[in-house]
Design a protein around this nucleic acid. Structure first.
Lengths: 146, 146
DNA sequence: AGCTCATCTGAACAGGTCTTCATACGACGG
DNA sequence: CCGTCGTATGAAGACCTGTTCAGATGAGCT
């Protein structure tokens, strides 16, 4: 669970080649909870619908129906997603009468969005294809990172 | 681009409050494909197992079995995940004999990981809990709970 | 008060994702 | 050449996620 004393478990069913490396990485990895936390945020950004909502909110706060119209989604679906996002403190809501205005609440997420949008600018469409063999591009660009 | 002539579709079943805003956001949103692309990358980072693998790879290339040992996952599972990551050009593999060494291939992802790790440093555990979990921590640890 | 509007909520279904088991491939060692 | 090792792959299963439909809540208007 926590401080596993880096047993070079050659007895366990796990094969290890570079024990030092494994130990080092184990020490460098954040705790389980932190990783799960970060993964949860990434997972929230991992849905196209939610991602569009958040990008829309980059420009400022909006109400649910406008958000739905701008992103081409059903209002109920948007409400559900906003609920999720709010639960994770990614957005916050302000109520004005019967309207609810949402805005980004997390600077970290805003940074992630900015970085990603900037990346999308000068990057050709990625090959979102799966098991395509990278035959032609097999040769690595070179450079030993270590 | 996809010049949807911003019909203030009052005829459609969608209600709009601030038509200008909606139009502006529509224009500012990246194309569908781009959003889907970015979401796909975020989704890849959204799994705790994969996220750990990628964080481990931040330190340099590793083989499958070491990766599995360091991250506490089955080797088969790791192989599957690496396959996914490779398909999206997030990692690349180098073969040396019967070993396969993986390394980060995408500078964008590396940046996202760095930003997130830095954020984890000086940030108290987020309330990764959903709406229903007031539990003992009913009184929020401080800040703006609601 | 009664009605409409904007949003929220719950349940159910469809679809996808992740893990595991079993097996296949290619590479090394004897 | 044959056995073993590291990895890759396929299929099956459990699990989770996202959308939709229906109804509920609360605020404003006549």
């Amino acid at each position: 669970m926590s401080a596993v004393p880096v047993e070079s478990d050659s007895s366990c069913g796990v094969r290890i080649v570079d024990a030092e490396r494994v130990a080092a990485v184990r020490g460098a990895l954040p705790e389980e909870g932190r990783v799960a936390d970060a993964a949860a945020v990434f997972a929230l950004l991992g849905d196209p619908g939610r991602l569009k909502l958040l990008v829309a909110l980059l420009e400022g706060e909006m109400c649910v129906c406008d958000l739905a119209a701008a992103c081409g989604q059903g209002e109920s679906a948007v409400s559900h997603q906003l609920r999720l996002l709010r639960a994770h403190r990614v957005v916050i809501s302000r109520r004005s009468g019967r309207m609810a205005y949402y805005r980004l609440a997390d600077a970290h997420v805003r940074l992630l969005l900015d970085v990603t949008l900037a990346h999308l600018e000068h990057a050709e469409p990625e090959p979102t294809t799966l098991p395509a063999a990278p035959s032609t591009t097999a040769a690595a660009p070179g450079g030993t990172p270590r």
